[in-house]
Design a binder for these strands. Structure first.
Lengths: 250, 250
DNA sequence: CAGCTCATGTGAACGGCTTTTACATGAGCC
DNA sequence: GGCTCATGTAAAAGCCGTTCACATGAGCTG
């Protein structure tokens, strides 16, 4: 169609042909490298081989570029959480923890997105599209929490799923912010961020009365797998799961 | 001594007399208002009634001003956590939760400090003094966790205090970051951030096997969210603490 | 009190960034 | 071939951070 120029040489031709995308990519690289604060509109333009004014044909201002990136970030985030959740397979608790790990993995592997989404100081709820995207991502956690809440052992009060979701989110976000990125990640920890979060979530779920020793429901649909041994009364038998949900601190 | 000029009129006289402090205060106000990213060295100078170059007599550059503020922030943070912990009085669990609330209160009441400390993108561990201050603040949580861990009921494996401290920190930080500040605070929640964190911590402690029914706060200082009828024995009796550590969602 | 000195503040200047404006280019369409 | 409009450019205004030579005056020294 119209890309021939661009395919021959990226910076040739008066018209770039794909500038918007090029700017987004450039910005992504710059943010990963220097943080959203250090990222410069002019730098992105330069990197795309275009004058400093050109980006204004595609973004109202610097903030809109940042918002676009955050938006994409939330979409990818949602996709990854969705994949991790995998509709609760093979069992709800396992899938739930996979979601937690996916949260950390995203923060670690997509620092630019994460930065734009959570650390750029963008007024998220000033932008409806952005807020909606953020909401959709959170809804994955919410849905998972809902499924988990439904598993509450008989006799145990069923916790509000919304509350659980907010709790889990705050744990994942706290661990990611404090230990899983940037300089703070260098803080010497007794365990990896992943292990830290996993233990945290397991202990929390135990506190809600959920059985947290993983078992393998080969193919059964979820509902039944309430443990066969839950007869002893307390769902948190003293000394059960010897060593607790945390591994031996190496 | 030398303040006479300054006392007569803040901006009179060739020499300000107290510029460093004035700049810190100005910056604090600006950061509270526009965030660390929006804060401008020149603006602070203007606000102090001084030329744009003057601040360089007191701070190597803009980042050093920011670091100074973060440093002070960590010190005040430590002081507030220390006061909240109050050496574990009247009982460890109560004091522990007071620390959690103090964390949120600090984030809410000192947005400028919080911003400089956690959201400014400062390379915390590039600055030894800053890192040390941050460490000291964390040590309050660590010490509290230590005391809590020592309370592990007999028969229960004693959790590593360091892990507990990191967990609690991540919860408090997650809640503060996501729900207790700025725009995100507007997200409609089923409960206040304080209640959210309190429930989260209580559930977590329950998951560790701790008894979490508060015992009598001397004289109604504490609104006991859990009615005093939970005494059946197991720390997590099935159906015990009816309603769980969370209040009824209003 | 005279005079010296040094910390502290000023003004001007440099380069960089953001954003706007008037103008240039050329891709797609008749 | 010629029009038109999206897309790019250059130039300029205004702001910032930072540096440098220079100004001021507070406090010491004699």
């Amino acid at each position: 169609m119209s890309w021939r120029k661009e395919q021959r040489r990226a910076e040739r031709g008066y018209h770039h042909g794909n500038l918007k995308e090029a700017l987004l990519q450039a910005a992504l690289g710059l943010i990963a490298e220097k943080g959203a604060a250090g990222f410069t509109f002019a730098d992105a333009a330069r990197m795309a081989g275009v004058s400093a004014a050109a980006p204004y044909r595609h973004f109202r201002d610097r903030d809109e570029l940042l918002s676009s990136i955050a938006q994409r970030g939330f979409e990818q985030f949602e996709a990854r959480l969705t994949a991790a959740w995998d509709d609760g397979r093979p069992d709800t608790v396992t899938a739930f923890e996979r979601v937690g790990r996916a949260y950390l993995a995203f923060a670690r592997e997509e620092p630019a997105f994460y930065n734009a989404m959570f650390e750029s100081g963008l007024p998220v709820d000033a932008n409806p599209a952005l807020q909606a995207a953020s909401e959709r991502a959170f809804n994955i956690i919410r849905a998972a929490a809902e499924r988990l809440a439904a598993l509450a052992p008989p006799g145990t009060p069923r916790p509000p799923a919304m509350m659980m979701a907010l709790h889990i989110w705050s744990m994942a976000h706290g661990v990611a912010s404090l230990f899983s990125r940037g300089d703070a990640a260098r803080r010497k920890l007794p365990m990896s961020p992943d292990e830290l979060l996993e233990a945290e979530v397991l202990i929390y779920l135990r506190g809600l009365g959920f059985p947290t020793d993983r078992r393998a429901p080969a193919k059964g649909a979820e509902p039944p797998p309430v443990p066969p041994e839950a007869s002893s009364g307390s769902s948190v038998p003293p000394g059960g799961t010897p060593g607790g949900p945390w591994g031996k601190p190496k």
